[in-house]
Nucleic acid binder design. Structure first.
Lengths: 206, 206
DNA sequence: GTCTATAAGGGGATAGAC
DNA sequence: GTCTATCCCCTTATAGAC
């Protein structure tokens, strides 16, 4: 409102909310704090997001969209070989996990924070439903590569193993203490190494 | 000192609190609900646990002690071969994860729920400190077996990989929806299979 | 003297109204 | 933006029952 253009109030709100939610958890952050951090007024926030759940949903949606985009990019650079694609996917997640201050995957963290939400009669709305849907969708690329590499019988097993490693990486990152400035580089290296081994194992069998 | 007539009020409180905390998370469960579930009065609870944090700490301590005991038992039955011990440890975690209604590891879940607690100046008290300490202690058995199997260089890497798989298993269980009555049996089978492969891989190298 | 039951204080949450 | 309504949280204090 002062001189400069409004740098998209909605975007500023999402930035502030994202930072706070990601660092301290959804439940621990109140709306007032987000309003203060964003510099917008209360009406500004509730004008764009009617309820806290709406804001949380937008936050999760934004994060998962960004992750899906960067993963697509990493997979495109990995070429066509299914083994390379799988390793690239895990490596990409590892790099993201290594980012300073990273606290894992907001979708997974949210589902731990709110275990019993949004599944009544298969609800299709709300943060929990969005989180589950996005996690489900994120599996397709690795599923396909694993089936290409290991066939219709072993493929799903390999895909499940890759998912377990990714879940492990995100879990490790999620429980870093805030003052912990050392990213879990050993875990990332071990994860990539393990996936390489599994890929080679299945490649040799085919 | 403690209860004269009643069938161990403290135990009844811990049972109720454990059930509720485990199923719905620590933050989502209020003291009143625990009191109602335990059938005790408010003074009864606060007589045994001065604060909610104390109750949570006792809950985490009890769970981790039970897990450590059953893990020790599983390892004793596994014999002396380090590879067998590693596989047995993961299998044991998998069986625990498969238990109906299981929602993963309370220690890990707590640290996701309360990311920024109990690490100021290396606090040694409180639920977060206890959770981190117990998780650290739980590593020693696998660490030792991995070093025995793979030597001082590859051993730590193998141990890290096993930890990642365990973290992945617990993470998968933690985000089951409450109405989800099908345990993640595929994930457990894939995990055990993967650890077997890694153990064989390292065994072949030594 | 413990245990149970009830009421109330103090703080902070979301959300709406002006 | 401020101010308010409503609700739930943890915790303490008071009163009754075995």
């Amino acid at each position: 409102m002062v001189g400069t253009v409004k740098p998209d109030v909605r975007e500023r709100i999402l930035d502030a909310a994202g930072r706070l939610f990601y660092a301290r958890g959804v439940r621990a952050v109140g709306m007032q704090e987000i309003i203060d951090e964003a510099g917008t007024g209360k009406s500004g926030l509730y004008g764009h997001f009617a309820t806290k759940d709406d804001l949380v949903e937008a936050y999760l949606e934004r994060w998962s969209t960004a992750l899906a985009a960067s993963t697509d990019r990493a997979l495109r650079e990995a070429g066509e070989d299914p083994g390379d694609r799988i390793v690239a996917a895990v490596t990409h997640v590892g790099q993201r996990v290594l980012r300073e201050g990273g606290r894992g995957c907001p979708l997974r963290n949210y589902l731990v924070e709110f275990p019993g939400s949004g599944d009544e009669a298969g609800a299709e709305t709300g943060p929990s439903a969005l989180a589950r849907r996005r996690l489900r969708e994120s599996r397709s690329a690795v599923d396909r590569a694993a089936r290409e590499l290991a066939g219709p019988v072993d493929g799903p097993v390999l895909a499940e193993q890759v998912r377990l490693v990714v879940d492990g990486l995100f879990a490790r990152a999620a429980r870093r203490s805030p003052g912990d400035d050392a990213p879990p580089v050993d875990a990332v290296l071990a994860a990539v190494e393990m996936v390489r081994t599994m890929v080679a194992h299945h490649r040799g069998r085919s």
